[in-house]
Design a binder for these strands. Structure first.
Lengths: 177, 177
DNA sequence: CTTTATATATATATAAAGTATATAATATGT
DNA sequence: ACATATTATATACTTTATATATATATAAAG
């Protein structure tokens, strides 16, 4: 799927690997992260498959080694649009190290569980503040990107409320015993 | 992380691979799925590392080849609890093939986008109905498991509302042009 | 004016997660 | 007797994710 994320970005404009990472983190970094170890091998494969082309450029006054600018080809555009029109294969996947622990908190120390929940609450509070502040930034990026940003903020808010409610219930439950 | 999911389940009771998959899909299948290709290699590794023990049993009157019953060892219990007490490394990851397409819908055919959103709406409606019906089933499984089930249903409901709202906004937006 | 730190940029090795498929044993229906 | 479904394990392969190495240029510190 990373393949299509890259093709989608190159659909906007030509880019090099480093810039692609920046964009992904800035744009849909609400919900995921990406890694150079995923980007460069994918770029290589896309290039081998003739879905993108590459030109090496040195930009005067800019830091770092020469950049490899990739552009999407007609073949790439075609394959990207084919993918865009197919129905998504699988439903949402939520693999979260916190939730994973949460289901098993009954086996561990209740006090430590509350501590971890508190950490999570402050993490989500910071994140929500950051998102709400940035919501306006997406207004001009088109309706779909804006709606995704809305979803990100709503999800964040919902989970935060759930965390607070859970903490209360767990404490109440512990007090009753 | 699958390693710890398996250890967590074996913390309840001894199990064989096939049963582990059943349990994972039944218990936290709200949000993920798991695969034999992930379970058996993990069981092998856990056994090599002496975190679980194995005994092969043939249950009379039951179908299939002999089962390999795995139990958690003291060493396994220790490592599991250590993990449970550590702070979760990374925040929630949301890698969804639908959302992935959604951000790029601006590049594609608007009518097809609405079709895919409709598919998604009916998918989420069915799923939400199933979840709400099952919510009571978790009541007896302890507070943490119940709270996770609540979160699953809430997330489902929220995304469904977002899908409906998005559809309206997209149609309105298209009509204005 | 040199060394150190920092930002930019690419690349690769390894590990973990996920998909697809093969194999085997037994119960059950026809 | 034979096809079919269910239970169960196993492995090959692909994709995703982490960790780390390398190179270049600017900026800052001493």
């Amino acid at each position: 799927m990373i393949k299509y994320a890259i093709l989608g970005l190159l659909h906007y404009t030509e880019m090099h690997g480093y810039r692609i990472k920046e964009h992904i983190e800035r744009n849909f970094g609400h919900m995921w992260s990406i890694n150079y170890g995923q980007i460069y091998p994918n770029l290589k494969k896309l290039h081998d498959d003739r879905l993108i082309t590459m030109k090496e450029v040195v930009v005067n006054g800019e830091k770092g080694p020469p950049r490899k600018l990739y552009s999407i080809t007609d073949k790439g555009r075609e394959e990207f649009l084919d993918w865009l029109n197919t129905s998504p294969e699988k439903p949402m996947l939520l693999r979260d190290p916190f939730l994973m622990r949460f289901v098993f908190f009954g086996f561990g120390d209740g006090k430590r569980a509350i501590e971890i929940i508190d950490e999570q609450i402050s993490r989500y509070q910071k994140e929500l503040a950051r998102r709400k502040k940035n919501l306006t930034r997406w207004e001009k990026s088109g309706i779909y990107v804006r709606l995704i940003a809305d979803l990100g903020a709503s999800l964040n808010e919902m989970v935060l409320e759930w965390l607070k409610r859970s903490k209360k219930e767990i404490l109440k439950n512990a007090a009753e015993k």
